[in-house]
Design a protein around this nucleic acid. Structure first.
Length: 584
RNA sequence: CGGGGCAUGGCUCAGCCUGGUAGAGCGCUCGGUUCGGGACCGAGAGGUCGGAGGUUCGAAUCCUCUUGCCCCGACCA
């Protein structure tokens, strides 16, 4: 391809609404154009990278026994009503009506459609298991699209679904997909981690997310330094402490007074008595969050969450511990009227009508402080087991970097930021039961199929690849998905000699099936071409100029290592041939 | 949906406070000189200042309403 005919325009300036690196570089290199919030056009260069990644995904999935199909982007409401999601799915589902006033939506995912396809096709255990996938545009009307392709509303996704006769076989396939995903992300050449994640509302199932490690990632991940336990912070387990029981301390009500001091950290410093001349250490303080809980029968109740003063409350873990449907902070005014005090001095002691979940870290502890439910005062000697009537225990605080691993004896947690690019999920019977996706087993009995689903964000992964592979000059494409492998710069596009060399080279490259882009733009200074080449980030740059040709030399530069090789023009073709062989 | 901000040529922005001829840099076109890390000179094209209403002799500028977009918190590939 010749750049003079190529649809793109590089920019020196960073578009003002591009926040993260991948978005900035895609905009600056002219690969991406926003049409509406979270909706983008892909220019030829970006599309090539997307297609390369897609074909890696296809190859690996087909190797693992999956088959590709394609389902409609526009879906009728009937199926969604049948699965129960027409009502359950929030505003992310873009709904609209056709001319006959029938309800439709743009597919954010395809469980309903694929389940319908399979139930109409498969009747016998002999036809199972089956694993199908598609690479397709999805639309989710995200609350807040951002970061370019990292969180668009319209995006390309590979979604796959498997159907099985029983749990055992579904689990087998789950791990088959898990290994396939590892191969895919290894092959594309990204640093990634499979991460244990929260399975959300679908109880009893398990799930892994695949995260590409990048500072701009929206998820916090903790990984053990010793074993392979890696999890989303939302879910990371904390090691229960096993400290020796302490001698009980009597509850001294309203023992500490800290008038006018806001915030637990400052309050702790001012909780001074003869035993605590320096104040109470943060580890001996506790804090209370009053929360409104909705259970799965939509019954509302108020729960207090008690955790150590040094920790953060983890809403996902609390939600799971209580088997709640939703959980949100109690309105401040309600909380104040319930406790008869200001925020900052609320405590669990004496709140008879509230049920409490107390963090396991506090188990067996005594001599703690807690809010006195009287503005400006804290109790001392708080002992959860003794002082709270309606007590439940749970692991409800955020794990932190440096904490001991919950799974092994030796390790400590390290923290990362991750971009979620894939997920494997065991769906179980969530769709097959309501949608009656059944088969006849060996004894002729009708049974629901057990399902799994497996997603990879195609466009998001390409963004993540740039996020992880760039420098101050621009993109550094991993060879696996680089739009082209060689970028040939004709520094003197109007010079007959260099152009002749390039034309020869072009014939050779075409015959060998080697991918290349030629910068043949005339009246552009060499510096501008170098800058653009760095920005576009193709793996190898071949510079051909009249200066070099005088000595019979051309230059090959590796974008990543910046290593420069000056080689005689006669050897150019064989050198390119050898480099090309190193690619996949 | 709450909180904050922005909207002026393809891009980045100035002008607005204090109403009176719509500007700069980059990009684009033409001519010339350059040519190995974003060259220079000259001449051009391109904007109903997001939209609607109002105040005024006069509105990019002041007022009201609206739309779009971005950023910070609850969703997910």
């Amino acid at each position: 391809m010749r750049q003079s005919k190529f649809l793109f325009q590089t920019h020196r300036e960073i578009p003002k609404d591009a926040e993260v690196i991948s978005h900035q570089l895609m905009m600056r290199s002219g690969m991406l154009l926003k049409l509406s919030s979270g909706v983008y056009s892909y220019f030829p260069l970006l599309l090539r990278a997307i297609k390369k990644f897609e074909s890696i995904v296809r190859e690996e999935l087909e190797k693992s026994g999956c088959q590709e199909l394609l389902m409609p982007f526009v879906q009728p409401s009937d199926l969604w009503i049948e699965s129960g999601r027409w009502g359950a799915y929030g505003k992310e589902l873009l709904r609209f009506k056709d001319r006959k006033d029938n309800d439709f939506c743009l597919g954010p995912t395809h469980e309903e459609v694929v389940t319908d396809m399979v139930r109409k096709t498969i009747k016998s255990y002999k036809q199972l298991p089956i694993n199908v996938f598609q690479v397709q545009t999805k639309f989710r009307d995200e609350i807040r699209p951002r970061f370019g392709l990292q969180r668009g509303r319209e995006f390309i996704m590979k979604d796959g679904y498997s159907f099985h006769v029983d749990d055992t076989d579904c689990d087998r396939e789950y791990w088959n997909m898990f290994e396939t995903y590892k191969r895919i992300f290894t092959r594309i050449g990204l640093a990634f981690r499979p991460v244990e994640a929260d399975s959300g509302a679908i109880g009893g199932s398990f799930t892994h997310e695949f995260h590409v490690l990048a500072d701009s990632g929206e998820d916090a991940i903790l990984s053990c330094s010793h074993c392979d336990y890696t999890s989303n912070l939302e879910k990371t387990e904390c090691r229960p402490i096993s400290s020796a029981p302490e001698a009980p301390v009597a509850l001294k009500q309203c023992h500490f007074s800290t008038p006018g001091i806001v915030g637990l950290v400052d309050q702790a410093h001012h909780m001074v008595d003869t035993d605590h001349p320096q104040g109470v250490p943060l580890e001996k303080t506790t804090k209370l969050y009053l929360m409104k809980i909705l259970d799965y029968s939509d019954k509302e109740s108020i729960w207090g969450a008690v955790i150590g003063g040094a920790y953060e409350l983890n809403l996902v873990k609390m939600k799971n511990a209580l088997q709640a449907k939703s959980i949100e902070p109690l309105d401040l005014k309600l909380a104040e009227s319930l406790t008869q005090c200001k925020s900052g001095f609320m405590g669990p002691v004496g709140l008879e009508k509230v049920k409490f979940i107390v963090d396991l870290k506090l188990k067996g502890q005594t001599g703690l402080t807690c809010g006195a439910n009287k503005t400006d005062f804290h109790h001392f000697g708080f002992t959860p087991d003794r002082d709270i009537k309606n007590i439940h225990w749970g692991d409800i605080h955020n794990a932190e970097a440096g904490d001991r691993c919950a799974r092994c004896e030796a390790g400590k947690y390290l923290s990362f930021r991750g971009i979620e690019v894939g997920q494997v999920f065991k769906l179980g019977l969530k769709y097959s039961l309501p949608m009656k996706c059944n088969f006849l087993d060996m004894s002729g009995k009708e049974k629901p199929m057990v399902m799994g689903c497996y997603g990879i964000g195609i466009t998001r992964t390409v963004a993540a690849a740039i996020e992880q592979n760039h420098d101050e000059d621009g993109i550094i494409w991993p060879e696996s998905i680089a739009p082209y492998h060689f970028h040939i710069l004709n520094l003197d596009a109007d010079n007959a000699e260099t152009s002749a060399v390039i034309e020869d080279l072009e014939v050779f490259l075409r015959n060998e099936g080697i991918e290349f882009l030629i910068d043949d733009r005339s009246a552009l200074s060499p510096g501008a071409k170098f800058k653009d080449a760095d920005l576009l980030g193709l793996p190898y740059r071949i510079t051909i100029g009249s200066k070099g040709l005088k000595d019979g030399l051309v230059e090959i530069r590796n974008r990543k290592t910046k290593d420069v090789l000056k080689i005689p023009i006669k050897e150019l073709q064989s050198v390119i041939y050898d480099i090309n062989k190193t690619f996949d």
